[in-house]
Write a protein that binds this DNA or RNA. Structure first.
Lengths: 245, 245
DNA sequence: CTTGACCCTCACGTAACGTAAGGCTTTATC
DNA sequence: GATAAAGCCTTACGTTACGTGAGGGTCAAG
């Protein structure tokens, strides 16, 4: 296991990725080992390991192998960016799973008491169960990727810059106790929504999940999380209070 | 949407399970709607919805469709049992994801500071990432199911009864501050391990995850969780302190 | 020097649907 | 009450990410 060119079986044993999978990644040009021995043995280096990690993280996000390959081609995709995405996704999953677990426990309790659970409960459970692990669905990813390309890197950066600013303003209104229905707050909430939509391509499903992702992202840019949740709550109230269009 | 025989598309829309998937489930005899209209339209009742929920929960646990079908045939499998399994699995996932997320954040920070992360980190991340969502692997499930059949229902119940008893004893030693290496504790730890192995068929991978499941299960039988964790920790120390065989 | 553990390259198999084709039925619209 | 549009049916081939051998070199150990 020691000496850092590893043979395929060694890498497989250490990572839990099957030999066949590594062969497959090589075949499709997703991860080709940096070296081959004289006899044609695949030899993987640290660089290959790092790339494999990126790949597995992206797969955990729901990327297909092809999407992962394309994504890793893009120059702005740095290793820590991938890690951040993975972390954001995990936190999202955790939140969703936590609430589902609570719900399931309730239903189980109810079932044990009177064996009579309304079908509506089951319908909702099915829906939520499906959503978990599917948060970034393939079409959603499609849109995300397209948007990412269409907006261009600098556009994205601009949005990134606007977020903290916008959040600071919202925070100010919140501290001041302004009613979420107030026009000033409404304007901020609208802008918030626009920013989200700009990034998501207007898909409401993706908006929900990516909303939280942005929350993470901007957290990383130097803000605190507990607070953020209350901010989100405030904005949501504002949306709820909005005159319908 | 109201009237409870639903057509396939209605059910699909409400649950997020695709029409094709429902057709598929019908084809393979996993979920055949209770009724058909004169024109041959599939009509799903509340009972069908409840079954669909079971199926999706089992799928979330990593069951294949065939395994789910067989599992649901068994008479001791009640709806709330499936819910409990699902809950246990979710909590397990949450714990694993939480620790992975922490790890990823650490690594990301380290990367941003010196851009130099030891390969060992990546190897471990890959391994853990793989394990999540794979906790119950198909072969593991195989073993679980086989064991479930081989042990028989009453054997299981006996084990169920022994758990609280055993845990009470462990708790007593722990409260007393007995060293985990002490022979009394060692005996209890061995029995603990035996019980786990009896249920898991001796597979160490499954033992780890099912250990937590039992934790949940027995919790449900009326014990408190926070405490349980420290119990587990204590037993693990005992295992670590065991003279190697 | 042989034997077991690995490695290679084909190459076909599989699970759980996706997707499209061709053709009825039900619902909505005028 | 006709005429779409929308939804349902079956049949059937396509897809992704590998699993699972088959047939045959390679290499460290005894």
């Amino acid at each position: 296991m020691r000496p850092p060119p590893w043979k395929v079986g060694e890498l497989a044993k250490r990572t839990g990725v099957s030999v066949r999978a590594l062969h497959h990644y090589d075949e499709i040009g997703l991860l080709s080992p940096s070296h081959r021995s004289g006899a044609g043995y695949r030899l993987y280096t640290e660089i290959d390991v790092a790339r494999l990690q990126q790949i597995r993280s992206l797969r955990a996000l729901g990327f297909s192998l092809e999407e992962a390959r394309d994504f890793l081609k893009r120059p702005e995709v740095t290793p820590d960016r991938v890690l951040q995405l993975h972390v954001a996704h995990l936190k999202e999953q955790i939140a969703a799973q936590q609430s589902l677990a609570d719900r399931l426990e309730q239903v189980a309790r109810r079932w044990r008491s009177d064996e009579n659970v309304p079908t509506e409960e089951f319908l909702q459970i099915i829906e939520v169960t499906n959503m978990i692990g599917k948060y970034y669905t393939s079409e959603q990813m499609e849109q995300l990727k397209q948007r990412g390309e269409m907006l261009g890197a600098d556009h994205i950066r601009q949005a990134e810059a606007e977020w903290p600013e916008l959040m600071a303003k919202v925070q100010a209104e919140m501290d001041r106790g302004t009613d979420p229905a107030d026009e000033r707050v409404q304007a901020l909430a609208r802008r918030w929504k626009e920013l989200v939509e700009e990034f998501t391509g207007g898909d409401p499903g993706i908006a929900k999940s990516v909303g939280r992702m942005w929350q993470e992202e901007t957290t990383i840019h130097g803000m605190d999380t507990g607070n953020m949740r209350s901010l989100m709550g405030y904005v949501q109230k504002a949306w709820a209070a909005a005159p319908k269009e």
